[in-house]
C-alpha cells in the first residue's frame, strides 16, 4: 500500500486533496511522525484517520465540482457542434483553407477542454450527453422547418455556422467569467478555468474576424467592420452588438444576467455596460473624446449560471434535462 498512490487516486476525484492536507498543519505534522512509527500493514488505517480529519471540515469540493460540471456541459455543447460541422464536407467546401484550419483548431481545443475537465472531475464528471441531446438548428429536436428552426441551415450555410459558433463562444466567455468566483477555494482549478476562458475569448475573436471577412476569405483579419454589428461584428463585443448574430435568439448572450446570489460587488451587466467597480468609465481622465462604444468594448461582462443555462438550452432538444 503506497500512501502517495492513494493520495494520487483521491486527487483524481478531488483535485483539492493536497490543499486539504497541506493547509492543516497539525494533520501534516501528525503524518510525518507516522511514517517511522507504523508498520506498512497499519498504514492504511492511519491514513484513513488523517483523511477523515482533512475532509471532515469542508464539503468535498461540491461547489467546485458543480461549477466544473457546468463548464463541462458547455464544452460538450461546443464540442458536438464543431464535431458535426467540421465533419460535414459540403459545409467545409464553403470555407477558405485558413478558415477551415481555424475551425479545425477550435474543434480540437473544445474537444481537449472536454477531455481535460473530465480528467479533473474524475468519477464526479457528468455523463457524456451524446450528440442526440443537441439540435443546433434551434428546432429543439422537432423536424426542422423554416418556421421552427432559426438556424435551419446551420450545417449547410457557412454564414449560419459561423453565427452559431460566435454565439456559443461569446456565451462561454461570459460563463467562465461568472463561474470564476465560485472556484476561488481551489487555486489550481481556478487557474485552469481562467486558462480555458482566455482560449474561448481567442476563439470568439477569430470567429468574429471570419464573419467580417466572409467564409471564403483567406486573410479575414484584413476586413474592417462594415454594415451592421449583427452580420459584421468587431473582434470584440461593442455595446450589445445589436443583439448578436440573430437577435431573436442571441440578444440574451449580450444582455444582463440575474444578480441574485452574486458575490459581493459582482454584477452581471449587459455587455453595453460602462460602469465598472461602481465607477463610471466615461468620467475617467485621459479619455476625453473617446466614443461611448470604446468604454463598453474595453470590458467584457460576466454572466450567471442560470442565465447561461437558459441561453444554452436554445440548442438542447425538448425532453432533455441537460443544462436544465
Amino acid at each position: 500500500m503506497n500512501i502517495f498512490q492513494i493520495i494520487s487516486e483521491i486527487e483524481k476525484v478531488d483535485p483539492e486533496v493536497y490543499d486539504r492536507l497541506d493547509s492543516r498543519r497539525s494533520i501534516f505534522k501528525h503524518m510525518t511522525g507516522l511514517g517511522q512509527k507504523l508498520s506498512a500493514a497499519a498504514l492504511p488505517l492511519a491514513v484513513g484517520a488523517i483523511f477523515n480529519k482533512a475532509y471532515a471540515q469542508t464539503p468535498v469540493g461540491a461547489t467546485v465540482n458543480d461549477v466544473l460540471n457546468f463548464a463541462l456541459s458547455l464544452e460538450y455543447l461546443e464540442s458536438y457542434f464543431y464535431q458535426r460541422g467540421q465533419a460535414t464536407a459540403a459545409l467545409q467546401a464553403g470555407f477558405s483553407a485558413t478558415n477551415k484550419a481555424a475551425l479545425d483548431l477550435i474543434r480540437t481545443d473544445e474537444a481537449n477542454h472536454v477531455t481535460f475537465l473530465r480528467s479533473v472531475l474524475g468519477t464526479a464528471a457528468i455523463a457524456d450527453p451524446g450528440a442526440a441531446t443537441f439540435d443546433f438548428t434551434g428546432a429543439k429536436g422537432a423536424t426542422p422547418t423554416a418556421a421552427n428552426a432559426p438556424f435551419l441551415d446551420v450545417f449547410t450555410n457557412p454564414l449560419t455556422y459561423l453565427a452559431v459558433a460566435q454565439s456559443l463562444e461569446d456565451t462561454g466567455v461570459r460563463a467562465y467569467k461568472g463561474g470564476a468566483p465560485l472556484l476561488m477555494s481551489n487555486k489550481t482549478v481556478l487557474t485552469a478555468a481562467l486558462n480555458i476562458h482566455s482560449v474561448e475569448a481567442r476563439h470568439a475573436s477569430r470567429l468574429r474576424t471570419m464573419r467580417r471577412g466572409g467564409p471564403l476569405n483567406n486573410t479575414a483579419s484584413q476586413s474592417p467592420q462594415s454594415g451592421t454589428l449583427n452580420a459584421s461584428p468587431k473582434s470584440w463585443i461593442s455595446g450589445t452588438d445589436n443583439g448578436g448574430a440573430s437577435p431573436a435568439q442571441t440578444a440574451g448572450i449580450y444582455g444582463a444576467g440575474n444578480n441574485t446570489g452574486a458575490p459581493t460587488g459582482v454584477t452581471f451587466d449587459a455587455e453595453s455596460n460602462t460602469t465598472q467597480g461602481g465607477a463610471a468609465l466615461t468620467g475617467l481622465p485621459n479619455t476625453t473624446g473617446f466614443p461611448a462604444a470604446a468604454f463598453s468594448e474595453a470590458f467584457d461582462e460576466a454572466l450567471d449560471v442560470t442565465t447561461v443555462k437558459a441561453i444554452a438550452r436554445t440548442f438542447v432538444v425538448n425532453g432533455s434535462t441537460f443544462l436544465a
Binding site: 476562458h197 474561448e200 470584440w236
Partner: peptide, 8 residues
C-alpha cells in the same frame, strides 16, 4: 476576468 478576455 472582464479585462483578460478583451486582451485575449
Amino acid at each position: 476576468g472582464q479585462i483578460v478576455s478583451v486582451e485575449a
